[in-house]
């Protein structure tokens, strides 16, 4: 089995995390495990993980990197509002604005499940629910769609079209 982080070396460190009964597993090569474990000391084979730091480090380097999915990730259009590239999000582990969540929705769902053991919010919605979308973003997305079609970037166009549909549906539902 290859390391889930670098996708190059054999995974030798296996971490099993159980959150609310939902078990997730991480398989890392020795080098990536060392990088994610701040407690690791040179010459030591023992890795001590603070789960908080580990998860934060993991989400700084999330997502597939070697497979076809990884390639698709890299071709994702940047967030139409703040311009954040998905690759930059992978490196920093920080979103740039609310619209990033819509831009990368399909790709961040598995990450949330890895971090939280769930990908779905539970609780009341605030009054005057303001989602990440909005009129302004719809306009931007539609412009990007036109450009993508004109340049015959059909994969990008398909992703944009899906996002526009989600936003339009949400706007019709009132949230």
């Amino acid at each position: 089995m290859l390391c889930e982080r670098c996708g190059k070396k054999d995974a030798e460190v296996h971490i099993r995390q159980s959150v609310q009964g939902l078990v997730s597993e991480h398989h890392l090569c020795r080098d990536c495990a060392r990088e994610l474990s701040p407690a690791w000391k040179p010459g030591s084979d023992f890795l001590e993980f603070s789960i908080g730091t580990f998860l934060e480090n993991l989400c700084k380097n999330l997502g597939p990197s070697k497979t076809d999915e990884g390639e698709a990730c890299r071709q994702l259009p940047p967030c139409p509002r703040c311009g954040l590239e998905f690759d930059e999000f992978r490196k920093t582990g920080r979103f740039g604005c609310t619209a990033c969540y819509d831009s990368f929705r399909e790709w961040i769902r598995p990450l949330f499940v890895r971090i939280h053991g769930s990908g779905t919010y539970k609780g009341p919605a605030p009054e005057g629910c303001l989602s990440s979308g909005g009129e302004e973003e719809l306009v931007l997305l539609k412009e990007q769609l036109k450009e993508a079609v004109a340049c015959e970037k059909y994969e990008v166009a398909a992703t944009l079209r899906d996002r526009i549909r989600v936003l339009e549906r949400r706007s019709t539902d009132g949230c």
């Binding site: 979103f95 609310t98 919605a125 990440s132």
Partner: peptide, 14 residues
Amino acid sequence: AFDPEFGFLTTCPT
């Protein structure tokens, strides 16, 4: 910033 699926949206996914 709130999303029906993800809840309150924050800079860091954690």
